[in-house]
Design a protein around this nucleic acid. Structure first.
Lengths: 189, 189
DNA sequence: GGCGTGAACTTGTCAATGGAAAGATATGAT
DNA sequence: ATCATATCTTTCCATTGACAAGTTCACGCC
């Protein structure tokens, strides 16, 4: 509730995070500037400090939000491991700013309270998908190894896609390409 | 070949790159400062500009060196795909500074001439390993898909390892853990 | 030997940034 | 109405990247 143009912005925290997402999507996390965010929000350059303390505080909030969104996306994808893997890649593509920050621990305080909790939940969502694999497969006695392999392959595909390192031949539909790749790790009976 | 303390440093370029590697390994690419590198090398704050133009020039040089080292490491690993995958992860762990910069195109000029060439060679080394897979496997008709899956899984594992996101249960030997993960993608006959 | 050309490096400077300190203003509870 | 607090502003400082102009050195050439 605000929109009022007064001394108080009213929604600064959310506006700053949204602006940060836009900047990172356009130019990467290295180009992020608190003063630039403040300018975009129409407030003084010191206003962000009140909400986030410092730059790493803002990125901590962004990473926390990212882990929450990731956990949501994984749950929404249903119980199938293949679908969850595709959802992981889809999250990275749809929220590339969050994703890029989440796995750069040098940019934020990775021991922050809320962040640790959110990451835990996302990790649980990731692992519980492996439990739904068929029982008869060869590696059924080591579900944690399966989980690590699944995480590696979707995370690697997502990272390579975002970095632009993949050849054009892969196409322009990350979810379809990801599905094909994951399928090689867990072939369907 | 100098060591002389005169006006000319003599080996500044290499010394700056080495210092950059140390800084990035300790604190990540975000903490890199040209002035700090100059201080460590004992030269004036503007000396690095002569060799690299600007900061992204230095990181371009670092990424190029990284792709060269990666191509070397892959070739040295022999023709077996499993060994090459392990070598990829080993490179990422042993040269984490190079690796972290290589896949951050926002940090350097990814259209630089020497860099494109070095990356091309590393990519070839990566793909030629897939050709050595046994003929009878189910996905033999799509070697490019196999290459993409292999690249994804080793790149993902390496990235997760470096970011510290993996649970301690994985152990402290990245090559052994990587071998196990890759083995799930390409089971041995 | 002297000379000049250019590479390597220094000094000086500027705008932008992150961060801290201290003041101003609005909000809401009592 | 009053006051405590959260929110935002203004002012200030050290650091950084980048640029310009000057200084020192190395080396080929006559």
């Amino acid at each position: 509730m605000t929109g009022t143009r007064g001394y108080h912005h009213g929604d600064l925290r959310r506006v700053l995070l949204a602006a940060a997402v836009r900047v990172i999507e356009e130019s990467g996390p290295a180009a992020l500037s608190l003063r630039d965010l403040a300018r975009r929000a129409g407030v003084s350059h010191a206003a962000p400090a009140h909400h986030f303390g410092d730059k790493s505080g803002l990125l901590t909030a962004l990473a926390t939000e990212g882990y929450r969104l990731l956990a949501e996306a994984l749950h929404a994808a249903g119980g199938d491991l293949l679908d969850r893997g595709v959802a992981y890649v889809g999250f990275a593509v749809d929220h590339r700013a969050h994703f890029e920050v989440m796995f750069r621990p040098d940019l934020y305080r990775c021991d922050a309270h809320e962040l640790v909790a959110a990451r835990q939940r996302a990790g649980d969502a990731l692992h519980s998908g492996v439990a739904a694999l068929p029982e008869g497969r060869p590696t059924a006695q080591d579900p944690q190894g399966d989980a690590l392999a699944a995480w590696s392959i979707v995370h690697g595909f997502a990272t390579l896609w975002l970095s632009g390192a993949l050849p054009p031949r892969v196409g322009d539909d990350p979810r379809a390409a990801a599905r094909d790749v994951i399928h090689r790790l867990f072939p369907r009976p």
